[in-house]
Write a protein that binds this DNA or RNA. Structure first.
Lengths: 122, 122
DNA sequence: CCGACACTCAAGTAAATTCTTGACTGTTCT
DNA sequence: AGAACAGTCAAGAATTTACTTGAGTGTCGG
């Protein structure tokens, strides 16, 4: 039986999926200001507590949020390394594309419409 | 009935959702190397062409990809500004959290760091 | 001890997502 | 002109998601 797997290498699938929901982003934004218990995260949200808990579980499975239960209170906080992993993935793709633009090969390869080539566009 | 709430930026919903699918990320990774027509994007993928087109539509609606049809060929390319917008959102949240941690350490160490007048007037 | 509190679990539902197939449109090649 | 190519459109099936309600568990304050 799997009781608790501490083995959560953040898959991009899960992380992006977690961030795709506005409620979960609102939770992340709140947690960016500091850790908070579940019931406080639920306060501004117009849904049942159980629903909020489900969102938090998704955030936790994605590795974006870490929680710790003390007594009857579960405290949530952000895991910045997961956030950083996403940031890095995006930055790398954007960097690739922009370095590609420096080469200028492909854009100039598109066929010009047969009339005379006017290079200057005023 | 659709119960939605708390809409910050509707585009973030779509962008994160678009990136949450491995097929769509594979398309983005391919496009990071340079623009490509739909059928070339479909080549390595093990699904019908229609399915790939649907993925591309989602990427386009999210603003991550821009397409242009010439003759019978639709060419796709990355829109780096959308990628950058996501990067910025994440970096801001991570920055908030980390600054928060710094503050906490300082506040526990010293009573009050005097708020100096910043002279940023460029 | 008792009740309020802070979740927790399970089951069910409406809507969204992902992918398929089959028919169809518009282009290019020969 | 006809065949092949590149994509488009629509309808439908299997699965997943985002909630709900109702009942239960463990913890703290008085």
């Amino acid at each position: 039986m799997v009781k608790r797997m501490l083995n959560h290498q953040p898959s991009l699938d899960r992380v992006f999926h977690a961030l795709a929901d506005p409620t979960r982003r609102a939770i992340v934004e709140r947690l960016a200001l500091g850790q908070a218990p579940v019931s406080e995260l639920a306060k501004p949200l117009t849904m049942s507590l159980a629903a909020v808990v489900q969102h938090i579980q998704i955030l936790e499975q994605s590795g974006l949020v870490v929680t710790h239960k003390a007594g009857r209170v579960r405290t949530c906080r952000i895991e910045p390394r997961t956030l950083q992993a996403v940031e890095t993935w995006i930055a790398q793709r954007r960097g690739l594309w922009e370095r590609r633009l420096d080469r200028l090969g492909e854009l100039l390869a598109e066929p010009a419409p047969a009339t005379e080539a006017a290079k200057d566009t005023p």
